[in-house]
């Protein structure tokens, strides 16, 4: 275990605790974006093969798509509550 994996692990633990403790929905989305970067990097460092790169790319695009959908729904709900 070298210094790079240790640093990424510490960052993901810190971000996980901050997701659990904050109350604002928008700040939770920003922390989840940071966690996705950390897990994609850990997957690529754990499997040293070209298939690991494909898994990391698929995971990253899928989680970004899902995060996009959550943010869009948040905007729709705020617009619908602000109109009335």
């Amino acid at each position: 275990m070298d210094i790079v994996m240790l640093l990424i692990g510490v960052i993901s633990f810190v971000v996980g605790f901050r997701i659990f403790l904050t109350k604002n929905k928008v700040q939770r989305l920003l922390y989840i974006c940071c966690l996705n970067f950390a897990i994609a990097a850990l997957i690529a460092l754990y499997i040293k093969s070209p298939m690991g790169g494909v898994v990391a790319a698929a995971y990253f695009v899928g989680s970004t798509l899902s995060s996009n959908a959550i943010a869009h729904t948040l905007g729709k709900i705020q617009k619908l509550e602000g109109k009335e």
Binding site: V4, I11, Y31, C34, A41, L45
Partner: peptide
């Protein structure tokens, strides 16, 4: 390998 770790630290200073 160091650029992967560097990118995670760089995104941590902005988003986290």
């Amino acid at each position: 390998k160091y650029f992967i770790g560097g990118m995670v630290v760089a995104i941590f200073t902005i988003q986290g």
